[in-house]
Design a protein around this nucleic acid. Sequence first.
DNA 1: CTTAGGG
DNA 2: CCCTAAG
Length: 706
Amino acid sequence: MLEYTEKDKSDEGPPSSSVVERSPAANKTGTADRLVYKLVKVGDDGSVLPATEDEVFQSLVEGRSAELAPSFTGGSDSNEDYEDEEGSGGSLDSDDDDLDAKEDPPFSSELENLVAERKKLLARFEVVDTMLSRVDAEQQNRVSLEDQAGSVLGHKSNLSVYMSTGDAIGDYKRQRRPNPRYFDFDAKGTHRARAVVNQKPSTWTSTKVQAPKSVGVPVVNSMPNPTSLENLSIRELHEAFRSTYGRDTSVKDKHWLKRQISTGWSKQRDAALSIGSHSQLPSQTDPKVRPEQRLSAEQPLPSSTAATELVTERDMVNGGQELGTNGVDLTEQLCTNEVDSKQSLCRVLPLAVISPEEGFDASAPGSLNELGAGGAQIAVFGEVVNTGKQVGGKRQRKPNRRYIEDEGEVGPGTVIANCSRPGPAGSDSGGHGSGMSSRLSWRTVITDAGPADLVGQSGTLQVSTLQNSSRANILQGQCTNSGNSSLKHKAEGRATKLVKTTHSAAPASQHDTEGTVLKVKFRLPAAPGRDKDGLYKLNGEARDQGSCLLPVPSRDSADLLQPLASDIVGAGPAGEQLVAAPVPTANGGTRRKHHRPWTLHEVMTLVEGVAHCGGGKWADIKKLAFSSIGYRTAVDLKDKWRNLLRASRAQLYPPKQGERKKQFTAAIPDTLLAQVRELAAIQHQEAPGTGAAGMTSRSGRTVHRK
DNA sequence: CTTAGGG
DNA sequence: CCCTAAG
């Protein structure tokens, strides 16, 4: 019931392609601004209408007629976007004007050559962009204000709207990751609404689809059997990927690769089929379909549609490329296109897709957990990226952001890479939905000046932007933030942590004090993922510390620094260490992971915590002993402890055999290990017996040997 | 949400 | 470190 209800409320937008009048304002009005006219369609008469991404994209691609597909126009627009705008209204107007001026298309449009068109379009986009930037800025401000005010509601709606691109229906739940357990539940609620939605896309699709180019891998027959993917090694997967998409990828995650590949195949197949007639669904493609999903997937499969679209887009994009004369222009154009396409897809796909979440945009670094909207996939460069479409009607797991570094890599596509990800291609740490991320990056690129401006206006914005670039950038974020220290942004868990860390970490260890610590809360809409800590409060660290039960023995700086790590992030002002620096892997690739070496201090703290609370009470320990640490989650503690146990055990057996083994572990002093052992022993004892002092279950965990 | 385990 | 399955 609940789900259903919620949907009703928020959904308005998406589903009804039809008009949908939502009770809009009611909910979101105030806040929902975010969307705002991202895209504007300028009519010949000079009127400006909010256009759908599709429209824009189309117009861009086709170059010629500024017009959009008729079918599209009306319906799609009616999304939240609309509403949103109203909310923010004022600021936009000016922009609109600009558009008008620039945009009026000459009568002789027909005659105009593509170049001219392109220019125009570009100009238009710029304007739009600008607009967007402003809007964002504005929103940021608003958000910040809201935060201060303490109003929470607004955010939610905003974000979701924004990200989910309409489709999201604002339903938070949907964005969560598909836990099987919940899935059923979810699905039920969701379906109806969706069903309603599905019609719109078709129109568009049919129009566009023309000559799908065959990609690296041609048609159905020639495609390898998906099931074969299971057994492939990463290298093989890479090859397959390359053949499928025509580019390399650095992603190491097998799941991701498989998914991408299979998706690519299925898509291609679909495209091929759909062109001729109508395709059937590729159900077998995905190896991991969840049964539940199938059951629940009553709806018709839009997949074919999606695929088609993607293909089409790709073609278009490619075309653009070819046409492009001058590098620069080209570049821009591409970027633009890409962006648009993404957006458009988002818009469209959602309808079709059951679970947008899955969607994953190769080009968008971010996403992590799904964002619904963002989820939609995009075609980057011609390549068909996995769409949220669920091939077999099942949801695919979403790839971890972490693993996706891709995108930029493509040779040919380089252009885009530049555009979208200027900086070090960050992995998306922040990832909030792909949608978001893509957006961000995009924006970043385009708005050169933008960032600066934005920053100035609202520090907040920056943060989000930064995310993409990984923690390295965080610093900036700090700076920015510092201004508005009071702001709290909801951030994605990790990101948040990181940021936080950067901010306060070092100091914290010592005397901290910082009243200023801010919690940066990214506003990721949907980011369901791991917000765990997102909300973490930075309480004054000092305060907490004082309150901690566990006295931290080594507060001395010496202790802190000594440890293995360089980590103490704080140490360096620049918080760069946080990072996800690419780490070379033995195998060969590089992977970016958040790695934050444990400091001796932390380890000691952990040990004490265990001593006080017993093993297994990670959450408690976290609260007590790590209140000042912040970035270590209970799980981290658990993991670390596990490692310590291992180490302590290992210590007993000297590494005689010439195996140098894990030298890494080195840093931990024997004494500590000894303590660990002791504790382990103690717990071991107690556990089995009866809960001695109220410690009940924790025991078992102690020694597991693997 | 918190734990335990696996990877 | 991350992810997931289980209470």
